[in-house]
Amino acid sequence: DDVELRDGDWRVELKDADEEILRAVEEAIKNGASEQELRELAERLIR
C-alpha cells in the first residue's frame, strides 16, 4: 500500500509521488476531504 494515512494526522505520505499528485492531495486535504475520499483520490492518481 503506497498511501499511508494516520488516524487524526492528515499528513499523507505518497512514495514516489510526483508534484501533481502531491498538489492534488494537499488541495483535497485543504478542502476537508474525508480519509475515505483521500484514499480514493490517491488510488486514482497512483494508477
Rank of each mutant, 00 (worst) to 15 (best):
D1Y: 11
D1K: 15
D2G: 12
D2R: 10
D2K: 11
V3S: 12
V3H: 13
V3M: 13
E4S: 11
E4P: 13
E4M: 12
E4A: 14
L5T: 15
L5H: 15
L5K: 14
R6M: 14
R6N: 14
R6C: 13
R6P: 09
D7N: 12
D7E: 08
D7Y: 02
G8K: 08
G8W: 14
G8C: 13
G8I: 12
D9E: 02
W10G: 04
W10H: 05
W10V: 06
W10E: 03
W10R: 04
W10N: 04
W10F: 08
W10C: 06
R11P: 09
R11G: 10
R11E: 08
R11N: 08
V12M: 07
E13T: 14
E13G: 13
E13A: 14
E13W: 04
E13Q: 10
L14R: 00
L14F: 08
L14N: 01
L14W: 04
K15L: 15
K15R: 12
K15V: 13
K15S: 10
D16H: 09
D16N: 13
D16G: 14
D16I: 06
D16P: 03
D16V: 05
D16A: 06
A17Y: 12
A17C: 04
A17S: 06
D18W: 07
D18V: 08
D18G: 15
D18T: 14
E19P: 15
E19A: 07
E19W: 08
E19G: 08
E20C: 06
E20L: 10
E20I: 09
E20A: 13
E20R: 10
E20P: 07
I21W: 05
I21R: 01
I21H: 03
L22Q: 09
L22D: 01
R23I: 08
R23D: 03
R23C: 05
R23A: 12
A24E: 09
A24G: 02
A24T: 09
A24I: 15
V25F: 14
V25L: 13
V25T: 01
V25Q: 01
V25N: 00
V25C: 03
E26F: 03
E26K: 08
E26R: 12
E26H: 07
E26A: 12
E27G: 05
E27Q: 11
A28M: 07
A28R: 02
A28Y: 06
A28P: 00
I29C: 04
I29T: 09
I29N: 05
K30H: 08
K30D: 04
K30N: 10
N31A: 10
N31C: 03
N31D: 06
N31Q: 12
G32H: 03
G32W: 00
G32D: 02
G32I: 01
A33L: 14
A33E: 01
A33H: 04
S34R: 03
S34E: 04
E35K: 06
E35V: 09
E35P: 08
E35C: 03
E35T: 06
Q36V: 10
Q36H: 11
Q36F: 02
Q36I: 11
E37W: 02
E37S: 03
E37D: 07
E37N: 02
E37R: 02
E37K: 03
E37P: 00
L38T: 04
L38E: 00
L38F: 02
L38I: 13
L38Q: 04
L38Y: 03
L38R: 02
R39F: 03
R39S: 05
E40C: 05
L41T: 00
L41P: 00
L41E: 00
L41S: 00
A42C: 10
A42E: 05
A42D: 03
A42Y: 15
E43Q: 09
R44I: 04
R44T: 06
R44K: 09
R44C: 05
L45S: 05
L45N: 04
L45F: 00
I46W: 01
I46A: 08
I46K: 06
I46M: 14
I46P: 04
I46C: 05
R47D: 11
R47L: 08
R47K: 15
